[in-house]
């Protein structure tokens, strides 16, 4: 299933007023996202957070990035789906132009990508941004 756009996600999340509903929605987004097959959970794809691990596989075809991501934590997987909505199937220029901090702020989830949070999300974002920068 294709992920909703970042604008749709922002709108959807505005609709819920309690944290439980919000996180259930995020968890579901994560569950709908295709899984990164287990054989691809390799050391090179691993981004170690101190709480949970995330893996990322990146391909580039005709200037467009295709990412597959995975986490061993369910909520982090959901948060990764939010990141994928922003970055998957985008060009280096689009990735570079996207303000991820502003996006997480709009989602009222900025705590999750703060550098002090040990869930690997910030590291994934940095990795994607570096990949994009190398293509600019």
């Amino acid at each position: 299933m294709a992920l909703p756009s970042t604008n749709d996600i922002i709108e959807d999340l505005e609709f819920f007023d309690d944290w439980e509903e919000r996180y259930k929605y995020i968890i579901e987004l994560g569950e709908d996202m295709p899984k990164l097959p287990a054989p691809l959970h390799t050391q090179e794809r691993l981004v170690k957070g101190c709480q949970s691990n995330v893996w990322i596989d990146a391909k580039i075809t005709e200037g467009v990035f295709y990412f597959e991501v995975e986490s061993d934590a369910i909520i982090v997987r959901g948060l990764l789906a939010l990141v994928m909505a922003a970055y998957d199937q985008k060009t280096a220029a689009q990735i570079h132009a996207f303000d991820i901090d502003q996006y997480f702020k709009a989602l009222d989830l900025e705590q999750h990508i703060s550098p002090t949070r040990g869930n690997g999300l910030r590291a994934i974002v940095a990795k994607i941004q570096a990949l994009a920068a190398s293509q600019l």
């Binding site: 709480q51 949970s52 934590a73 369910i74 909520i75 982090v76 869930n119």
Partner: peptide
Amino acid sequence: RGHPADIG
């Protein structure tokens, strides 16, 4: 079901 990080 759930990683320790989810529980926390």
